[in-house]
Design a protein around this nucleic acid. Structure first.
Lengths: 229, 229
DNA sequence: TTTAAAAGATGATTTTTATCATGTTTCGAA
DNA sequence: TTCGAAACATGATAAAAATCATCTTTTAAA
């Protein structure tokens, strides 16, 4: 067990910020800090969770297997994200599986604490509600893009999404590196189509790539493409 | 103004059931019953709502225009559904537009009432949270289907969705009738592809159609198709 | 009841995307 | 450092779906 939740700044990034001192104290006493290695499964689709995972460091993919055996990535979760939140709230088995994309540090929080606070602290409940409502809006937009946009547009959209959410390193590369297959699984296309599209973007000087790392070179052109030109 | 909210049974279908007597009384005093004609716009994408619409009768489509000018239907809302809930909660402009698919009766509830209850009645806040969390799970599944399944599978899925949610009339037809274009806009495909696919299903005796009305004839075959055979 | 418009249906063609095959590069473990 | 596996890349082909065109049927309004 590491630091105390009361002092944890990660909390400011999520709905746990609405918890009161005594609630945090109780969580602090039963939470468990864990390190997770790249590629490790945090939880699998269909599991019943007894708690949530608050991401301190590292990045995880949240995905769901479709009937035809392909994995669809629904979200990339970084620092501050609370993994398993939805299924703990509704007390259901998980809908998604979570896999570490690089080495991670997370805090495991037993679900009883959250459920207690959901029942008693309306500020917390509201904070969670606002967060989930935001996720829902985002998901609706993804549905529209999946249904109506081409692979080219969706690859462009995904590159933008990654830059917007994870920023860039000192060389201007997007600060999270995914392999082509994972990008394809966000886009909802085959690995080859994803590779081809990124190669095309590079040829057209919209992006620059170096191994897995991607840098956006011509933001305007990329955005124009996303909107359909 | 019609009946009193305290006696309204529609309420049992949604999160308003968690409201207390005095909260309902206040809502009852300021709510407005409205009739909406088929095809009428209840609210448009980007509007700022000052209240929500509780559906008493009729069916509405919730859709979003994609950049390329095509409408994507994200949800079909029937009796009990509260239209505009998400954007009133987050106090944002609407993400979706709502259009009546047949004549409707709705109750307009000014947002202040909901916001007051969200701030003070944790049971209500929790009920809303559970509802939105369910919507989110559903949306994630739609994303996976959009990304990974064929048009054929998605049409089958949509037919199943409509029957599951709206049931059948006395002749066994799905109790909601959409035109082919609307079905195509749920599936996320072109009108022609949707028509062709439904014709094929009819030829294969999985469904029977009569005008806009659709009856599922071979549920097993349909379900097998959805899962990928 | 007539008539125009909307919706449904179907064929032909083109575009997009998936799949298969195969070669090349990169990277980590021995 | 070498070697093998994994990831990346690209061509060829097949399959899926969009688009365009045209015709028929249904629907709603005059």
């Amino acid at each position: 067990m590491h630091g105390r939740c009361e002092n944890c700044i990660i909390r400011e990034l999520n709905s746990l910020r609405a918890l009161k001192k005594d609630e945090l104290k109780r969580i602090s006493e039963s939470k468990v800090s864990k390190t997770i290695k790249k590629g490790e499964v945090i939880f699998a689709e269909g599991e019943k969770l007894n708690g949530v995972f608050c991401v301190r460091n590292g990045v995880s993919k949240l995905s769901k297997m479709s009937d035809n055996g392909k994995d669809q990535i629904v979200k990339i979760a970084a620092r501050g994200e609370i993994l398993g939140q939805r299924s703990v709230i509704t007390d259901e088995t998980t809908n998604l599986s979570a896999v570490a994309l690089n080495d991670m540090e997370v805090c495991y929080i037993p679900k009883q604490h959250l459920q207690d606070s959901l029942n008693s602290n309306v500020e917390f409940t509201k904070a969670v509600l606002l967060h989930i409502a935001g996720d829902l809006k985002f998901a609706d937009n993804v549905i529209v893009n999946m249904a109506q946009k081409t692979v080219k547009q969706r690859v462009a959209e995904t590159v933008k999404y990654l830059e917007d959410n994870f920023g860039t390193d000192c060389d201007g590369f997007i600060a999270v590196t995914l392999n082509r297959e994972d990008i394809a699984n966000i886009v909802g296309t085959a690995k080859e189509a994803c590779i081809r599209t990124l190669s095309l973007f590079k040829k057209e000087k919209m992006i620059f790539t170096e191994g897995k790392r991607i840098k956006i070179e011509d933001k305007k052109a990329l955005y124009r493409l996303i909107e359909g030109f």
